[in-house]
Each structure stands twice: as structure tokens, then as C-alpha cells.
Design a protein around this nucleic acid. Structure first.
Lengths: 122, 122
DNA sequence: CTGTATCCGATTGGATACTG
DNA sequence: CAGTATCCAATCGGATACAG
């Protein structure tokens, strides 16, 4: 992990925190996956279901992103003793902390789209 | 721009908004640049100054990211009539809307780092 | 079903040299 | 100073085939 030493200029602590967040949640899919699992907290979310319902993601990416999220304790993986094997993914209590962040992303995106079409919504 | 048609399943509107945001603000540098310009709103921020002070960014990336942000009206570019030419970049009033989002990123990052080191800060 | 392994094209992004 | 142009390595990420 990075240390503060590299960012000692100015408001380095905030920059470091932002980079941490971007490292953990950045990229094309992670926040979308968290959003998916948060809004479907009370459903059974298998790998296949997620691959089908998260538009555009490939199995390879879904695996990788889920592993990363699991490593950071944001997502829980529960392998079922079925045949064939199924796996249930769920958001962790800690993972739900991202909900505020996600809501901000949604709000900003809606406002930006309105901005572009001329209807400013503040 | 994308349309809602492609995301008609479930809470498609929110997903679309998230993707919009990730498209406009996503990637390694854009939010860091906005943060830089917001916290230095009353300074004169030239290209060179930014290149020096935003740790790790290359001229190529800085140019590209600033162009993208300008296109989305988040950043203003003002070329000065000096010799040699200097350029001042500043956050736009609209660009300041990102401040809430950025603050969330900072908060999340700080909390996550505390989480990893055992000190949970909620 | 839930992945892994491999191939391979597309994209990212740094280094360097150069222009106005 | 503020970029642009070029080269090139590394990574991303889709498609496909295969394994447990």
C-alpha cells in the first residue's frame, strides 16, 4: 500500500485518501457491481445471474472484479454445496458504506445529463 | 451519448447515471485534477505548475484530461497574452458540483485505510 | 454452474524529442 | 511555457475453449 511520504506536499492526506478510493473502487465495473449487490441484497445473486444482468461485463472481468472486492471485504463469496456448484455473492456490512458514494455518483450523473440537455437540476 | 434503451432492465436509470459519471469523471486523474483546482481556486494554476504538483502525471495525460474536463464544462482554460504563452486553468462554477463527490471519496478512502489498520472510523 | 487458460487485438500511458 | 508527435511497453479486456 502507498504511504503518505510520497504525497507530503500540501493537502497530501486528502490526495492519498482519494487515490486509495480510486484504487479500490475505480475502474469500469467495481462500483456497478457494488450497486448491483446493494440493490439486490435480499435476492440470491449467483455468478451467472450477475453475468447476465450486469450489462456488458464478461466472465473474466466479473471474476477478477469480484476477487478484488472480496479481498477488500466489500463482497462476500459463499460457495454452495450443490451439484453443479453454485456460488452466492452478497454485499458485506462494510461494503454498504459505499452506498453513500454510489448515491452521489447517481445524483451527479443525473444532474450532468440534465445539464447537457439544458435542464439544470440543482 | 448513451441512451436509456440499453439499460431498460431494473433500475436502469440509476445505472445509466452511474455510467455517465464514470465516463465523465472516471479514470486515474480527472477527480484528482478537479480536486487540485477546487482547493486552489484562488491561485494561478498554469499547466507547468499542475504538472509539477500533481504527483505522477505526465504532460500527455494532463493535456488529455484537461481537454476532456474542458469539453464537459468542468474546467476553464484561459490562454494569456504573454511571451512565452502561459495558460491558466480554473474550476468552473459547474465544476464545483464535483466537490461533494470528491469529499465522499476522501471520506471513504480515509475510513477504508483506518479499516485496514484496525481502527474503524465511522 | 463457476470458473481458468490462452490467444490476441485494442487501449493506456510513459519517455523522448520536437514546435510555436 | 504549453503543448504535439512518435515510439513502444504494459495492461486491458473480449472470445473461445476447456476443467472441476
Amino acid at each position: 500500500m502507498k504511504t503518505l511520504e510520497n504525497y507530503s506536499t500540501d493537502c497530501g492526506i486528502n490526495l492519498l485518501a482519494m487515490r486509495d478510493t480510486l484504487d479500490v473502487l475505480g475502474g469500469k465495473w467495481k462500483l456497478l457491481i457494488l450497486h448491483y449487490l446493494i440493490t439486490r441484497e435480499h435476492e440470491i445473486n449467483t455468478f451467472k445471474k450477475m453475468e447476465r444482468e450486469i450489462t456488458g461485463i464478461s466472465a473474466k472481468m466479473l471474476t477478477k472484479e469480484l476477487r478484488d472486492l472480496e479481498t477488500n471485504k466489500l463482497v462476500h463469496r459463499a460457495q454452495q454445496d450443490t451439484r453443479p456448484i453454485t456460488v452466492r455473492y452478497s454485499i458485506t456490512p462494510y461494503g454498504k458504506n459505499a452506498e453513500i458514494l454510489i448515491q452521489q455518483l447517481v445524483t451527479w450523473g443525473k444532474n450532468h445529463r440534465a445539464q447537457l440537455t439544458g435542464k439544470v437540476v440543482l
